[in-house]
Design a binder for these strands. Structure first.
Lengths: 214, 214
DNA sequence: CCTCACGTCGGGCAATTTGCCCGGCCTCGC
DNA sequence: GCGAGGCCGGGCAAATTGCCCGACGTGAGG
């Protein structure tokens, strides 16, 4: 079996270090690059074209989902395993919609991460144990949380808004006109049934997003 | 130098694995136990009495700060190094008030963690680079629990705003001119240092108010 | 191939809200 | 009595929002 090269994306050096040491135990895996944010991830991916990308969702700036989308846009065969502290269905759905092949929770054990990495590296889809449970449970309560109605762009912008970013900052981070961000902002409020920003924050909180995301 | 025994506390197995591998590289350190939550941390501490405890703050249930307090209550000489994703002063202050000896951000590198661990294991206090910066900055901008600065009227209106009431509704409920409510709203934002309503919701949430108050 | 639906991206413009100033009342402590 | 400070409201320019528009690209279905 030919070795799998890996790109590691997480904004915490300590966490990257942990992954690297864990993965280095497996002869089949070779970590060849690391990145600390979405932009750097894209750059490193183009430079190194790894067989597998392990991507953390919560990063400063655009966040991991945008990075997944960006990479997949450039390389439709990119194999990306998302690792996140979140197990809520909306995150998982957004991650898969963006083009990731696998999704595991940070709360899962090392063995599951290795298993997921191996599967995704072979081009197969993988959903972690606890993530799958939450997905299944989410199916039961039909609530849908209206958050599911949001498009990918809207979801990204909502997360950045909740995180405290100003419209202009988001526009710059995403390379968009402030006007476009504003229009998305407007659409989000409409979809979530919020009249004001305060209402938006509340609606988002109810739907399961808190400021600690992004 | 006699070896330092270490108790590792973090609810993410993957993260524990990372620490363990990192620490195992240093002959001087020996990880002798792990725990995934506050209760287990206390139990393990009493069983093993490690020279150093490395404690994550964000854990389900009671959380890391409670664990620190609990352990220190039982053993006033316990040496605890807190590792957290947060750098906000209030977290750091709480952690030290609870009795930890060191505090480093997860965003810092492995070398800083090792340095901090070594220092704390020797009974010396340590504050990480970026944490120290945030502490210093926090000294500058006036607000700790700026919430305390709010007058009674302002506090009432803030709670109603957070609860989702519109300005006009609040005016009616309090028998005030909408203009007055608006002026209070403005003053609140100024006092809490929030530029937008979204920011206000976040600031309030940080300061300990969530929508469930009302 | 064509169309239709939909997401994304932006412009335009009126209406609303905001930032920031003002003054007047009342109460409390000195 | 008098100053400090909270409360109440007005006024007005500047910024933001609500709501409309069209353009482009893509993917599904006829």
């Amino acid at each position: 079996m030919t070795p799998s090269t890996i790109l590691l994306v997480d904004d915490h050096p300590i966490v990257r270090e942990g992954y690297r040491r864990l993965l280095d135990r497996v002869p089949h895996f070779r970590v060849i690059a690391e990145a600390a944010d979405a932009a750097e991830a894209y750059k490193r991916y183009r430079e190194t074209r790894p067989d597998l990308t392990i991507m953390d969702l919560s990063m400063p700036g655009a966040g991991g989902i945008e990075a997944v989308r960006h990479i997949r846009q450039w390389d439709r065969t990119a194999r990306i395993l998302v690792v996140s502290i979140h197990t809520r269905p909306v995150f998982v759905q957004q991650a898969f919609a963006a083009g990731s092949l696998g999704y595991v929770s940070k709360a899962s054990g090392p063995s599951e991460l290795l298993a997921a990495a191996a599967e995704v590296a072979r081009g197969r889809r993988w959903v972690g144990q606890d993530v799958a449970r939450d997905l299944a449970l989410g199916q039961l309560d039909q609530g849908e949380s209206a958050l599911a109605d949001l498009s990918a762009r809207e979801f990204t912008i909502l997360r950045m808004l909740i995180a405290g970013s100003a419209v202009d900052e988001i526009a710059e981070a995403l390379h968009l006109s402030p006007k476009t961000v504003r229009n998305h902002h407007y659409a989000i409020k409409a979809k979530l049934g919020a009249r004001t920003d305060l209402g938006l924050a509340l609606a988002a909180a109810r739907a399961g997003i808190d400021g600690s995301d992004v």
